[in-house]
Amino acid sequence: MKLLPKLLGVLVALFIAAPLFIVVPMSFSTAPSLEFPPPGYWLGYYAAYFTDERWTQPTINSLIIAFGTTVLTMLLVTPATFAVVRHRFVGRGLANLMLTMPMAMPHIVLAIGYYSYLGDLRLTQTHLGVIIAHTALSVPVAFLILSANLKGFDRNLERAAMSLGATPLRTFRHVTLPVLRPGFAISALFAFIQSFDETVVAIFISGRESETLPRKMFESIRMQADPVISVVSTLLFAAVALVILAPVVWKAVSRRRSRPDARGGEPVAKEPVPNPCAPTRVQLEA
């Protein structure tokens, strides 16, 4: 009785896992088109990816755009988050709605808007244009993560700092900022990934000049399944695995390291560890 649902669960887990891992052997395949299992293995398509400007340039573009998006998003979102979380004011609900709204928009709708609006501003096919569009799309994620962190921030820490003689500015610099650093980092990481992965808007506005990697991949899959795609896919998948596994490994290592001094008896206070699995990447980005 209990076995059947568990077996089903395992099957679904396999259903989720299989397609993820199939891209890895594909990237070493010698086959010029889709073929599985691969007839032979080599590194030729890796060499092709790293030397072909048609692939390296979009990669660089994507990195530049994602970096620009992250900086712009954090600059705009940080003060706004403090305003919404820390203050009670007329219009707070409206501000909250506006900051999360881009998340509820199907990206194809915004893609049309940006295509014509940024076109009027002569910003299509520029890095700046894509950065602007991606920033609007990244605001909700960055805001939600940062505000969750800020809500969890113990304001007594600031009170303590002030009672100990720190001016408001020094309190922010010495206490608020360092304590919230993981929150900022995760918020920025999500903004970065949001931009780096964004496909639909980029397809319509990035053009040849500022073509992003997802756009290049999309075009390439659509035209002819270029085997280099499996290389890019494998690299992206490896990057994701690295980002997710790094904190897990780090936590395991540091736990082992700190175990000798943790003694039983009195309860030890827990510090909230930022959860990389936080399902906040809710976007109608498809």
Partner: peptide, 27 residues
């Protein structure tokens, strides 16, 4: 508050988590 020279111990202690015990006391 920062100019009142009043020491406070909070219910949840409010120790700065990014500073060691000594750094907290030196703050």
């Amino acid at each position: 508050p920062h100019a009142r020279n009043i020491g406070i111990v909070f219910q949840n202690y409010a120790l700065f988590p990014h500073k060691t015990a000594l750094q907290n006391i030196m703050f």
